[in-house]
Structures are given as structure tokens and as C-alpha cells.
Amino acid sequence: MKWLAWTLCALTTVASATSTQQSVRPYAVTGDAIEKSLTGQAGDAKRGAELIQQRHKSLCVLCHSGPFPEPHLQGTLAPDLTGIGERLSAGQLRLRIVDMKRLNPASIMPTYYGVVPNDRNTRVADAWRDKPVLTAEEIEDLVAYLQTLRR
């Protein structure tokens, strides 16, 4: 049984390495988590707190509410992030930001760390082509910040 787990782990790693481009580094998924930091280092929770409110960059508050300023400008399309640091581990938070669709293909949460192949049906805009929504560093900052959200 152990060999199967290892094979699966290796396969997913290879899959993420081949399906992405230079701007996205490979990562390994274990269960419903990415245990290792995408950068190899811990993120900065303070920068993450600023980033989560940048509605045109991180987009988070367009769908999620949480303990942030201006609650009337927060969306109701996704779970409230209050106390999320108690419910999910760093690794679980990381995978959900990186690629929520791996856990739920019907999710509307964008894949933040991946590159959408551009073709006549996806029509990725010039400015966003071949790029992930956020960098590995930015995602680590968000993970660090979200871990601080406890009731």
C-alpha cells in the first residue's frame, strides 16, 4: 500500500511540473494539503494581511467575508474566513489557494498558482497570459496571515 502512495505522490508532482510553466514551480500534494512552502520559506503575515484586502490583486474579498475592514464591500459567494486558521492547517490552506479545483472541480475559486492554457475557448487576456494569479511569495504571505485568523 505504501508503494501506491509513493507512486501517486510522484505522479502528482510530475503532473504539476509538466502542466505548468516557468512562473510556476512544482509542488507536491499530500492528501488535501501542500505541506511544504512553495518558496521554501515562511511567508510574512503582515504582507498577507495587506494583500488579502487588495480586491483587484488578490480578489479574496470579492467572494469571501472575514475580519477585515469594510464588511459591506465583501462578497457572499464563498465561506467566511473568520477563524479559518483554526479549521485548516497551513498545508490545507496552501492547497486551497494554489488549486481549489483539485479538491472540488466545480468550485468557482480561481486556481491561484497555475497557468491557464490560452486558446480560442479560454481567451486569456494578454496581460494575464502565461502567469499565475499570484506568485509563490504572495501565496505564502496569505497562508501566513490566514493562520493567524483564530476566534
Partner: peptide
């Protein structure tokens, strides 16, 4: 019904399946 753009959202994602909810404000 097609998921479009970098964010991979379709018109239906919001206007068929989530109308009445809030996007931002």
C-alpha cells in the same frame, strides 16, 4: 457556459448559479 480567462469563470457561474449573492459590494 464556458469558463473563460485567467480566472476561469463562466457567465453561468454567477448569473445562473449564484444570482442574488454578493460579489464584493
Amino acid at each position: 457556459n464556458r469558463r473563460l480567462g485567467q480566472l476561469q469563470l463562466s457567465c453561468a457561474s454567477c448569473h445562473d448559479e449564484r444570482w442574488g449573492a454578493r460579489l464584493g459590494g
